[in-house]
């Protein structure tokens, strides 16, 4: 993306984010309180985040590859299971990938 397109992307996404937040404050609460809306929203959030985990971990362009990112994700999962803080999880994952690459793999 060119810098102009990138700026447009950033600003349009920011405007959309604010419109959603403000809409929540303005609409009557019961409009959004239905079970189906709440459930779909929760599930969409899970699906998007999980899909992003997969893309960030094994996608390389349009190829699916196994490299240092996969063991790094496994380390992150262990850290999360042990209730490590977010920032520790991210640093451990980066350190794992960096370490494996320094040893010449992935």
């Amino acid at each position: 993306m060119t810098p102009t397109v990138l700026w447009a992307t950033v600003l349009v996404a920011s405007a959309a984010s604010f419109v959603l937040k403000l809409a929540g404050h303005l609409v009557p609460e019961h409009w959004l309180a239905t079970d189906r809306v709440q459930r779909s929203s929760a599930l969409v959030t899970v699906a998007l985040l999980v899909s992003l985990v997969v893309v960030q971990t094994v996608a390389d362009g349009q190829a699916v590859v196994v490299d240092a990112r996969l063991p790094a994700l496994a380390v992150a999962a262990v850290a999360l299971a042990l209730r490590a803080p977010f920032v520790v999880v991210v640093v451990l994952a980066a350190a794992t990938a960096a370490g494996l690459r320094a040893l010449g793999w992935g």
Binding site: L49, V53, A68, R69, A72, L73, V89, A93
Partner: peptide
Amino acid sequence: WGLDAAAGAAFLALV
């Protein structure tokens, strides 16, 4: 620096 792997870990932590 393993920053590409950090992105996957960030999403995992969020979900």
